[in-house]
Simulated scan of single mutants.
Amino acid sequence: MRYLFGIGAPLIFQAAVTWLIILASRGNGSFVGLGVMLAGLVGMPLTALSSFLLIRAAQCWSAQRYYLSLALLALLLPLAQLALWLLVVVFEL
């Protein structure tokens, strides 16, 4: 069950955020969608691998530290993708 929620849920969340940003940036002539897609292609498997290794190593951690580490790891890619999208929207690149 730890692997389902520690790897599967972040993967679904990251895929949904990637898809929404690609849809939001479609048609404005920038390459945000491509950048977000490429970041997702690399970032999602890396996040899954990192989460797997964290789950295996964190057998003796407290539950709060364990879940906080997994949540922060899962939020890295969506925050980077949102930052890319906001940079293009704000500065009209």
Rank of each mutant, 00 (worst) to 15 (best):
L20D: 02
L20S: 06
L54W: 10
G33P: 12
A48L: 07
A9R: 14
T18M: 15
S50I: 00
T47R: 07
L70K: 02
V17D: 02
R56W: 14
W19G: 04
G6P: 06
L79D: 01
Q59P: 10
M37Q: 06
L34G: 01
A39W: 05
L11S: 05
A74H: 15
T47H: 06
Y3K: 04
V90D: 02
S30Q: 02
A74Y: 07
L38D: 06
L82S: 01
Y3M: 00
R56A: 13
M44Y: 04
L79I: 06
A24K: 02
L38I: 14
A15F: 05
L4P: 11
I55P: 04
L54C: 15
R26C: 11
V17G: 11
L38R: 08
G29N: 03
A24T: 03
Q14L: 02
W85K: 07
V89M: 12
L84H: 05
Q64G: 11
L53I: 08
L70F: 14
Y66K: 10
A57N: 11
S30I: 00
G33M: 03
Y67R: 08
M1F: 12
L23C: 12
F5L: 00
S25C: 07
L87C: 14
L41F: 14
S51N: 05
Y66R: 05
Q64A: 12
L93Y: 07
G35W: 00
W85N: 03
Q81G: 01
A80M: 13
I22H: 04
W61Q: 13
Y3E: 01
S30V: 00
S25F: 02
A71I: 04
R26K: 15
L68S: 08
A39Y: 07
Q59G: 10
